[in-house]
């Protein structure tokens, strides 16, 4: 049958930073073509297409079922592929190659991560699954 695209509303203006992104305004309604796990969603607005940060999107209607995974408080081991310094106070600073525990994989690409006794948000795009125990 036909593919039914989900509609989402922009909660804030988003100015694009590269050619492949879509510049949008608060209140715009876009159709989501693809949801990437790293938090960039491929959207369509009229005849324009491009990537938009999922965190800027809210569903028009309540989704029938939650697409979000349940938190895993035991933690899922990952290694950071790139260093990241926290910008907002709820984020975590992690060096490249550090092992962290992913507690909650959120659809907006910002995962809840634990490092030692500290918990905060970290970009999923810089995380790679690890089969190894932390040193």
């Amino acid at each position: 049958g036909p593919i039914v695209l989900q509609s989402y509303r922009l909660i804030a203006d988003y100015e694009k930073n590269s050619k492949s992104e879509l510049g949008v305004k608060a209140g715009d309604v876009v159709d989501v073509v693809e949801k990437n796990e790293n938090g960039w969603w491929f959207c369509q607005l009229k005849n324009k297409r491009g990537w938009v940060p999922a965190a800027y999107l809210e569903p028009l209607d309540s989704p029938d079922e939650s697409e979000e995974q349940e938190p895993n408080y035991a933690g899922d081991l990952h290694i950071s592929t790139k260093a990241y310094s926290a910008i907002m106070e709820d984020e975590l600073t992690v060096e490249e190659g550090e092992t962290v525990e992913v507690i909650h994989k959120l659809l907006d690409g910002w995962w809840v991560v634990r490092k030692g006794s500290i918990t905060g948000y970290f970009p999923a795009i810089y995380l790679q699954k690890s089969g190894q125990a932390p040193p």
């Binding site: 930073n17 608060a26 790293n38 990537w51 999922a54 690409g109 910002w110």
Partner: peptide, 22 residues
């Protein structure tokens, strides 16, 4: 065909604009 997504983390919206859930 769909291009590859950007290779940098998606920006987070200003806290006052943040919605409760995706």
């Amino acid at each position: 065909t769909i291009k590859r997504p950007p290779e940098n983390p998606p920006p987070r919206p200003p806290p006052e604009a943040r919605r409760k859930q995706v």
